[in-house]
Design a protein around this nucleic acid. Structure first.
Length: 181
DNA sequence: GAGCCGATATTCT
DNA sequence: GAATATCGGCTCC
């Protein structure tokens, strides 16, 4: 599946397709295999784009593939990949994954050897994603997204929000069946 | 492992 | 002033 075509779709449909994809940072070699994502759309009361463009969320309305990076709780950075066409505020929050390249750098950034990218803020810290990357595009760089084979996954309620909880737009890769079981 | 809490940018009321 | 798309350190099992 062509990435540009994929990202032109609607966020709730694109999100599960990004499971198994690898986000690579070209300029330092770090890469994360995505295992957890969430979809947000414009008519979604829980989405930052719900009330229209603002200085913070403008990149969420950009071209598909745009990175929307925002500061969460005043401390952490969180990254989304924008979907759908320009002018539509849809994106997929990169909620977690596992570091598959550049592990040493990820460990030094995180300051610990474990839990490198098992949360949206941690994923950004491990890859060095900050506000300066807001508005860059995964079709260009310095971040590249390579679709993989989507693993088995389940959808659940999203995390950390209070509105529109009934939209089960959190997609989590299911661990491969344990051979010992 | 579960539960509480503090840090604090940005938006909304 | 309150809420939030979080995290890490702490306590107490």
């Amino acid at each position: 599946m062509n990435l540009a075509v994929l990202l032109g779709g609607e966020a709730p449909e694109v999100a599960p397709m990004l499971l198994g994809a690898v986000l690579t940072r070209i300029d330092d070699g770090t890469a994360v295999l995505l295992s957890e994502v969430e979809a947000y759309t414009e008519d979604d009361p829980a989405s930052h784009s719900h009330r229209g463009p603002s200085p913070r969320n403008q990149s969420m309305f950009g071209e598909p593939g745009t990175l929307y990076v925002y500061r969460s709780y005043g401390i952490h950075w969180c990254a989304n990949v924008v979907t759908n066409r320009r002018g539509v505020g849809e994106a997929v929050l990169l909620r977690g994954g596992s570091v598959v390249a550049g592990e040493d750098l990820a460990i030094s950034r995180r300051g610990r050897p474990d839990h490198l990218a098992d949360g949206p803020g941690k994923l950004c810290q491990a890859m060095g994603i900050t506000g300066v990357h807001d508005g860059s595009n995964v079709l260009e760089g310095p971040f590249r997204l390579e679709p993989g084979i989507p693993p088995r996954h389940i959808s659940t309620e999203r995390i950390g929000i209070s509105r529109a909880r009934e939209r089960r737009w959190r997609f989590v890769a299911v661990e491969e069946a344990d051979p010992a079981r």
